[in-house]
Design a protein around this nucleic acid. Structure first.
Lengths: 255, 255
DNA sequence: CGCAAGACCGTACACCATACGGAGAATGTA
DNA sequence: TACATTCTCCGTATGGTGTACGGTCTTGCG
């Protein structure tokens, strides 16, 4: 029921798995041929998480999808924690890293939009504690590419790290809101009105305008504009513009 | 094992529980006196989550701490999902909302620092999907207070919503990094060197400077400056300054 | 007093990750 | 060719989870 987090397994085993394609697979193994593969396991796991959320991701479900019995999955992957590392690195390599374009603003936008797309495609990423991301090839390539977007501006190395962390980190806010709104939209249909009918008495008693004058006004404005509580895509564009302007100002003063 | 998320229970029951203090408790119940209380359950849950993480939070653990048997907890709270809503609203009311001070910058800093403190005190908050926060009294009061920080600047209602979402959302990035670094520091001690010794061969093979020139340089600079991979507190101050500057620029142009 | 509501909880079910050890297959070596 | 080794696959079991269901007993109301 809880925190998924990266970086929990025995680190050397995890590192080997992450870099398995570059390190070269072990050759000449003795036992019977494997019926499946690490890549197949990771693919199956990502598919399950994409379709049904990270809650539905279990070793049993993966085994089922691969035509194996539960315990056989452990032949490919040491455990659930390591598997999640592999999933994170895998999806980090899904989108090609485009050539970094003209202005600073454009380059930072590229960095942010790549993260935005990734989150929308794989919402389970946001349910995972990726504060210490796995040092896999795709995550590493991506980080190098992001830093290149702000190379040569006169920023200190430390500032560079902080700028990218800020831009990438900001994205999670609106991305969370986006997938949440989508989920709600898909689930709701007619129960929406029911919900309001049932709760209106309580809400009226609670949300009196004397106590919440501004929230009330803002909430109503948002509701009228969008027909929903929020427009996360717009929030993404808005926030991104603000963040980039803040960074531009800093670069101008410090660079 | 997974996503905790708010807003999952039967909504009217949850709303009643959230607002239980303002709505007035039900009077003259018939059965035996309750041995515990909703507040005690929520307190116990928060203590467990604070001490041992959200993973360790289970209905059984709560029951144990209250001297009840597991199923009795369900007399107070409909289920785990609703309990988490109650926990979130409870900790949102822990810090008093200070008088909002002078400049826009100062007021936005107050908003951000309140969130920062809350995350550091209750790291499990970051393992929870609070994209749709529970509409409890403390969360609502806090939201109203945050909006008040930017009231009267000439921003549209929608912009106000987006600005606060941006400021509050930004905090999670460095806050995650902070508690993660702390956890690591507590757990590590001597195993740090061991880890490096074991993994140095792989890392050298992997992290060759041709492939990762900038990451390599930046990582080394950070390591030398902090003796650690990052300084999240500094990242918080840095990011906050950038975000606020971006917002100030927007207010100046749009207000 | 008697009834009904409600607190407490025993039991059970369906999940979960994963430790352990065994069966059998494929290979390297003698 | 024969054997030892190694590795895959998996049966079984342990200890955890949330919570549905129904029973027992306490308590206050009519």
């Amino acid at each position: 029921m809880s925190t998924e987090s990266t970086g929990r397994g025995e680190p050397d085993r995890t590192l080997h798995l992450l870099w398995r394609h570059r390190l070269g697979e072990p050759v000449g193994s003795r036992g019977p041929k494997q019926r499946s593969s690490v890549d197949a396991v990771v693919d199956a796991a990502i598919e399950i998480a994409d379709d049904e959320g990270i809650d539905a991701l279990s070793m049993r479900r993966i085994a089922e999808r691969l035509g194996l019995k539960p315990m056989s999955v452990y032949t490919y992957v040491p455990g659930r924690a390591e598997l999640i590392d592999l999933m994170v690195d895998r999806v980090a390599g899904e989108q090609p890293l485009p050539e970094l374009g003209g202005s600073l603003r454009e380059r930072l936008e590229q960095v942010a939009r790549l993260a935005w797309n990734e989150y929308l495609r794989h919402p389970w990423l946001m349910s995972i504690d990726t504060s210490r991301p796995p040092l896999g090839p795709n995550v590493s390539d991506r980080w190098e590419w992001s830093l290149r977007a702000i190379e040569g501006l006169g920023l200190s190395d430390l500032d560079m790290d902080q700028v990218i962390t800020l831009v990438v980190g900001f994205v999670t806010g609106p991305a969370r809101a986006y997938v949440d709104a989508e989920r709600l939209h898909r689930a709701a249909t007619e129960s929406d009105e029911e919900w309001w009918a049932r709760n209106a008495p309580i809400l009226e008693q609670i949300m009196d305008p004397d106590r919440y004058p501004i929230s009330g006004r803002v909430g109503q404005a948002a509701g009228e504009e969008y027909g929903a509580a929020a427009d996360p895509e717009r929030a993404f564009e808005f926030g991104l513009a603000r963040v980039i302007e803040g960074i531009e100002a800093y670069v101008a003063s410090a660079g």
